[in-house]
């Protein structure tokens, strides 16, 4: 399988009076269609690693190549453009724009990218919402939806521009058992049916159990031996 994301020698050090090392010497590769979970104790640097891999943050040292493009030395505008085209994000809290309808929220990245005409954006958004089982909510505001529904809308938005990789930061962390099982199932299906890679930070062992691979992060380093309690 082809490698879609390759990180080499990643370091992230927060500058300050006392510099803090968040990520230390991380190497990893993600293949196309792979479902990878990042686990680890609280404060171990899981989210920091995800932000680096998702090009939201830049490493202090090391390189990240996305779809064969080395991003070293890219400026903010270039990284933003890459995120727009190749990455999709789902966060622990749904993070939908509260004043816009569900449909508009899903259309937002497509409108920014400008690859499809407006009518096609609508069509694509509706088909994503249908796939995720929230098509009936399309014209509602996010505040009128349940937590699980919102998270599914967030997944739909993350998939809007047909990204290579979906990055999820504790996507089920804020959901009840039924809803989190549902979201888990959706993310699994995505890798199978659409061939997307998924990188998910999670605390949930059940979530991790279905993953192709588990990456443990302890104190900013990858630790294959660590086990969740």
């Amino acid at each position: 399988m082809s490698v879609v994301l390759r990180a080499q020698g990643l370091h992230k050090i927060l500058a300050g009076d006392v510099p803090t090392t968040l990520i230390k010497d991380v190497d990893l590769e993600i293949s196309a269609g792979e479902f990878v979970c990042i686990m680890g104790p609280s404060g171990s640097g899981k989210s920091s690693l995800l932000y680096l891999l998702g090009l939201l943050d830049v490493p202090t040292h090391g390189t990240i190549a996305l779809d064969g493009v080395n991003t070293q030395g890219f400026n903010d505008a270039q990284l933003t453009q890459l995120r727009l085209e190749k990455l999709g994000f789902v966060f622990q809290f749904h993070f939908l724009l509260s004043e816009f309808s569900v449909l508009d929220n899903v259309c937002l990245p497509m409108r920014r990218l400008g690859r499809w005409p407006e009518a096609q954006c609508h069509e694509r958004a509706m088909s994503l919402l249908t796939r995720l089982g929230v098509a009936a909510q399309a014209s509602k505001l996010p505040s009128q939806l349940s937590g699980g529904q919102r998270q599914r809308v967030a997944v739909a938005r993350a998939l809007a521009n047909d990204p290579l990789i979906l990055l999820a930061d504790e996507p089920t962390g804020n959901l009840d058992t039924v809803a989190s099982a549902n979201v888990r199932q959706i993310l699994h299906d995505l890798t199978r049916e659409l061939g997307k890679s998924v990188i998910a930070v999670t605390h949930d062992p059940k979530f991790a159990a279905g993953a192709d691979r588990r990456i443990n992060v302890v104190d900013g380093q990858i630790d294959p031996d660590w086990q969740p309690l």
């Binding site: 724009l97 990245p109 990218l113």
Partner: peptide, 12 residues
């Protein structure tokens, strides 16, 4: 909202 827009791919 600004964080979302930026993460989704909106430029500064």
């Amino acid at each position: 909202d600004i964080a979302i827009l930026k993460s989704v791919g909106f430029q500064a």
